[in-house]
Design a protein around this nucleic acid. Sequence first.
DNA 1: CAGGATCCGTTTCGATACTG
DNA 2: CAGTATCGAAACGGATCCTG
Lengths: 146, 146
Amino acid sequence: MNHDFRCNCPFTSALDILGDKWMLVIVKQMLVENKETFKDFTESEESIATNILSSKLKLLEEAGIIVKTKLPDNKKTNLYLLTDKGLALTPILVELANWSDSHLRDVHPTIVNGESMELLRDNKTAFARALEKKYREKLATITYIR
Amino acid sequence: MNHDFRCNCPFTSALDILGDKWMLVIVKQMLVENKETFKDFTESEESIATNILSSKLKLLEEAGIIVKTKLPDNKKTNLYLLTDKGLALTPILVELANWSDSHLRDVHPTIVNGESMELLRDNKTAFARALEKKYREKLATITYIR
DNA sequence: CAGGATCCGTTTCGATACTG
DNA sequence: CAGTATCGAAACGGATCCTG
């Protein structure tokens, strides 16, 4: 993060952190595709390189968007989980999806983590809330090291 | 655009175009700060280099997000204007602003193009619509070369 | 003088190999 | 499994140059 455009503008200050190809992709993989471990991310459709992944996870953690933790019974596998701050990015991802759905060709408008794209078209807020709720329910089932 | 992760995922396919530091910044400058000309952009708070600006404007035009045009009475100054596709990015920018406002320090939560941040906090959809309306009204006052 | 294009040093990315 | 090291390729940033 060498040259940020510290502009204090609410629109673009977020882009100083999120304005690159990978940060929101990783958040989306956690939120929508239940990715949790380093390996999960490397095996994802967008196939991020390990060194990039490593540096981006570090940045996301520093920004307070994710936490790095472990399961009590597995000392080697790291778990990456969204914080409240990270979960609050859901509406941004939903708006991105909505724009893609409306204005981009070759988008795959099928089922997304159990929620249909119809709900997205019909009610973006409800769609976002459903995604957040699902993630919170999943978090509740995990007893990770805090 | 050398290496896109063509994933057909509605969440991330937009990031293939918009997932960099500058694309959304430029759109925001057009939408919120009434920037129209090459010079306007170079003089902006985020101070983009001319070569980068040039390449990004080209990408935005190729993506159909902006159009490059001229005023009838001024043959040299180019005008860059948002298309409907570009204007449809407003909700994304609004969600970014909302997230920054809630989760980032040092954000400047004052007046934005005549709309107060209170309206944003109160009703994001109305805030987005107000910004779009204002831009469309401005477009209506310009007789540019189509 | 506006609107870029070109050049060039620096930073970041991306693919793969490698380590604990 | 979870990263780090390496190295070539691409992108960025600043300055300058070119063109009407």
